[in-house]
Design a protein around this nucleic acid. Structure first.
Lengths: 157, 157
DNA sequence: GATGAAACCTTCACCCC
DNA sequence: GGGGTGAAGGTTTCATC
């Protein structure tokens, strides 16, 4: 399952946690926090990147400030569970900027989406003009969140 | 709604997009991409940070490599919708490392959680020993995803 | 918005345990 | 094998235009 697994120690986990919180921390400051000097600290980071533990570094953008403060969860069921339908649907999903997250689910074989839109009006427009027009979409169920209580990008041991 | 809104132009949006993809890009390279020189580019970044458009920078960690490659969505309904119950539940949520995401939902007034666990066994343990033990939890419904089709941290105009 | 100098950070070869 | 040191090169920052 894990072709290139190396054994991480407590220092590695600490480095990952610190970098998850602040990707722009300097090697020097980071090395102080984890109890190492800058050079071996940098070496460990490079190794974590090369082995795929760290996949990238991203700026966290405030969606609400972008004008997309309104999220909606949408469950979508397709009328046929054939592979072609899934491929076609997923292709459309990737093209919609409103869909910020999409999961293929077991069970009733449908998709869970999170949309990021400006308003309820905006959501309705997207629903009627775009989502329902995708071939194979059989039924749609929406849930509106009040607020995000917790959000942790990834769990670290 | 937006106390400190400044008008962003196309260059600002481009800067945000580039930084979302690669927070560690140098000001020099970024300035080339957006058609500016390094110094005004850095000024814009500082402004975007100060005004709250950029809330931070984070390393992206591969959960699967951490041993938590298994996600489960869980819908939780509480037996009472009184404020105290919500506060208590949310306090527990923040303490559980397995819960990586939590939304308070409208409608049936419950929570949508995403768990990050090692395995189905691990999930069952968490469910029976911890989640069902939280006071006020009336019912739980789980959905297991097959894979994440799309994941965009935040939508940018 | 651009330039250039000072301060800072990253990187690498090298040494040590 | 992994950790420390120091010098070279690159990057950020700031005053200035």
């Amino acid at each position: 399952m894990d072709p290139c697994s190396m054994n991480l120690d407590q220092i590695d986990y600490k480095i990952l946690k610190e970098l998850q919180d602040d990707a722009r921390i300097s090697h020097q400051e980071l090395s102080d926090k984890v109890g190492l000097s800058a050079s071996p600290c940098a070496r460990r980071i490079r190794k974590l990147e090369a082995e795929g533990y760290i996949t990238g570094y991203g700026a966290q953008i405030e969606e609400a400030k972008m004008g997309f403060g309104f999220s909606v969860f949408v469950s979508v069921r397709l009328d046929q569970q054939v592979d072609g339908r899934l491929v076609e649907f997923e292709k459309e999903v990737r093209l919609c900027p409103e869909i910020v997250e999409c999961w293929l689910m077991t069970g009733s074989f449908d998709y869970l989406l999170r949309l990021s839109v400006e308003s309820l009006d905006d959501f309705e427009r997207f629903l009627t003009r775009r989502l329902t027009k995708i071939p194979g979409v059989a039924s749609i169920e929406s849930s509106v969140p009040i607020r995000r209580v917790k959000h942790q990008p990834a769990r670290i041991r």
